[in-house]
Amino acid sequence: MLIGDNYVFVELQKTGSTHIKQQLQALLGGRSEGKHNKPSDELLGPGRVIIGSVRDPWSWYLSLWSYGCQRRGSLYTRLVDPQNWQHSQPLLQARQREHGDLRLDQLTPQRAHDVWYADTGSAEGFREWLRAVCLPEMRTTVQSGFEASGLGRWGCGMMSYRYLKLFTHGVTTLAQEVDSAEGLRLWTQRHFRPAHMVRLHALAEDLITTVQALGGSLTPAQCEALRQARPTNRSSRPHPFGHYYDAQALDDVARREWLLIERHGFQRPSLG
């Protein structure tokens, strides 16, 4: 989180937030406080608006997986810890008995350690990991609070949960307040707190628009510098995007993150 005189930047994980913070601090000033936390009502007070960050969900999941291949991140820790599988494994077994569509030997914490996160060059490892984290039966394993939020009722994925948890007052009452997908759209619109969003694929232009909306004065040279600056702290992978995704994996993400895709106009990537 970055706190300025008239704004608070709230950062969603794996959305170029380190780079965005650096640019905002250079242009508008501000102090850093924590990282992926959300501001209190007292901190916002009168006159401060929230700036958020987001990226298309297909690249978000790939970046999150790449980070886990470095043995880092809360999701990596959860997936390799057998204790976090205690609720999900009976659900996976019940699904397999009913539908027969799972490979249970590929859904274990040992598999996560030995295969899913073993090689940043492995398309198979990524796709297997992605299928697992998109399974409804895995919600309690991949993210604390996800199942209780009720978001899974509308087919939403882990990214949508983190997004709504961070950018609204919270999702603890959502299950009682929303009774349809359309209701979820309206609830999100009503409770969404950021006044400005910086999208990773349009980072420079969104930053320019945001800084100017907050009263910052940018010269043509500063605008050009923002356009030329390269994001920092990027996940490292030996292959391009198309190596990791196939059509099924693209579909899995599209189904789970429909809310974010709709809200921010993200386009399904091409594999051609």
Score class of each variant (00 low, 15 high):
S144N: 14
R103V: 12
Y245G: 05
M158K: 05
H201K: 01
E124Y: 13
A26H: 15
R256P: 03
A175K: 13
S32I: 13
V133C: 05
S217K: 08
A123H: 12
W60D: 00
A94S: 08
A225Y: 05
V253P: 07
P220N: 02
G125E: 02
L28E: 14
I50L: 10
D119P: 12
H191T: 05
G150V: 08
Y163D: 09
Q228P: 00
V171D: 07
F192P: 05
R71H: 04
D206K: 09
N233D: 05
L184T: 02
L12D: 09
A175R: 15
R256M: 09
M197S: 03
G4W: 05
Q110S: 14
G73C: 02
Q189L: 04
I3F: 08
S32D: 12
W58I: 08
L207T: 06
N84Y: 14
D101T: 13
S217E: 03
T210P: 00
D56E: 14
G150C: 12
L104I: 09
H19L: 11
M138R: 13
S32H: 10
G155C: 10
T173D: 15
G100E: 02
L271F: 00
A221F: 01
W116M: 08
A202T: 09
L207Q: 01
G155Q: 11
K21I: 08
L91V: 08
G121D: 13
S88N: 01
W154I: 11
L62M: 01
A247R: 09
I20Y: 09
V198L: 06
S66M: 01
G30P: 08
C134V: 06
R268F: 03
H243R: 12
G215E: 05
R139S: 12
A221Y: 04
F192N: 08
S53G: 06
P57G: 10
G45T: 07
L164Y: 14
R190Y: 03
M197Y: 01
Y117T: 11
D105F: 07
E147N: 13
A202H: 04
G100A: 08
P90S: 04
H169S: 14
L250I: 03
L214H: 03
P39E: 07
A26I: 10
Q143A: 15
C69E: 07
T232C: 02
Q212R: 02
M1V: 13
W129F: 15
F241W: 09
L130S: 10
F241D: 02
K21A: 15
S122P: 05
Q110M: 14
L24W: 10
S17H: 13
F126E: 11
A132V: 10
G150W: 14
G242R: 12
Q25Y: 13
G216S: 00
V211E: 01
S53T: 14
C69R: 11
Q189H: 10
T172Y: 04
L250D: 06
Y117N: 11
P238G: 03
Q22Y: 13
C134E: 13
E128R: 15
T77C: 04
Q22R: 15
G47H: 07
Q13K: 07
F266M: 03
G100H: 06
G45H: 12
H196L: 02
Q143G: 08
A112F: 11
G121V: 12
E11M: 12
A225L: 04
F126R: 03
